[in-house]
Design a protein around this nucleic acid. Structure first.
Lengths: 188, 188
DNA sequence: CCTCCTTATTGACCACTGGTCAATAAAATA
DNA sequence: TATTTTATTGACCAGTGGTCAATAAGGAGG
């Protein structure tokens, strides 16, 4: 017997994720409750646990999507017709831009200490970092050590991490972000 | 009428802070409840609210102490009889060391998004950063822009932030920390 | 049409959280 | 001793994440 096809009114994972995304983005993971999400959807909170194992896993599904987004953004820059040095800079800036424009997700992607969430994150961060690292290695003129690229990444990460707390979006700090990119480019 | 002097058995702020410190350090801010602290002290959780306005303020008192500790550590390095370049490096490494050996506190000092806690942090971070910035400016040979020192700091911060999640203490990542310091020193 | 089975949904329930507050015990003062 | 100040308690509140038996709703087979 084939699985019952869901009817229009019924809740889908996508519907839940859409509602959850809005709330998580505007309030942050910690400050959104499953009951709030359910209220937004006009259903009981118990229902959410039928579709997702728990709050962490619901958020994880959202985050997975965002890693794809980050990867796309990096690939987009790589596809541009630009001087290599400039492209390298734009990679760094694009990374910062992504972080500051998706703060709640960046938090989970690279900042959370919450083990429940973190145990779910496996390939996401690695794949994104691989793209980043390979781009830097290729676009930089010099022969870079693996370690140097990693330390460069951590330096970028520090910028994002800090301004995630003080700023609502990339635009507010765009100039400084470019300065940071230029600053770090001296290293490679 | 002078204030009543507390008697031996009565709870003091220090006693609460000692118990709270242990718990916060071992479990992190989010995973310690006021009731757990009260249990540790053998008192009712209501009592804690007599001595501290709320959980955030209790933690804040702890954090204040830790800023003093960080400042002392930096001053200690500055007092050493060393080549200026080496001293500069040690400042950077000492900062990382402090962050990784006081992770729960570093989290609050420089990472928390919790507004309740953050609104309490005023002078602490500024004073510590001032010491850091002035040391770097003085010890570096070059004339550095204020912005460059700030970006250097953010790069250090990124290292600490990241390894706070993956490591239990400075020792586990000492070599890499030194490499990071050397790496960043190329910038100044 | 009527079973039977799968799928979705509900809301009561649990143990927990941070925080408040009237009642009260105990010590210091007058 | 009587009064005032200080410290402590535990019931209480509104909220949390999560579980689960009961139930409704839809499809498949007869």
């Amino acid at each position: 017997m084939s699985p019952r096809k869901p009817v229009q009114q019924e809740l889908t994972q996508d519907m839940i994720m859409d509602a959850a995304r809005d709330l998580f983005v505007s309030k942050g993971y910690q400050h959104v409750s499953m009951r709030q999400i359910a209220k937004e959807l006009g259903c009981s909170h118990g229902t959410l646990y039928y579709h997702f194992k728990n709050k962490a896993e619901l958020f994880y599904e959202l985050v997975e999507d965002h890693f794809v987004l980050l990867n796309q953004r990096l690939q987009e820059v790589l596809g541009k017709d630009l001087d290599e040095r400039e492209k390298l800079k734009q990679i760094l800036v694009a990374y910062i831009e992504f972080g500051l424009n998706h703060q709640s997700h960046y938090e989970i992607m690279f900042l959370t200490k919450d083990e429940e969430v973190r145990n779910l994150l496996n390939q996401g961060p690695n794949r994104s970092y691989e793209i980043f690292a390979q781009s830097v290695a290729r676009l930089s003129g010099k022969k870079l050590k693996v370690q140097e690229i990693w330390l460069l990444f951590l330096s970028l990460h520090g910028f994002v991490t800090h301004y995630c707390r003080y700023v609502n979006g990339f635009e507010e700090v765009k100039d400084l972000a470019e300065a940071h990119a230029d600053f770090l480019l001296k290293l490679i």
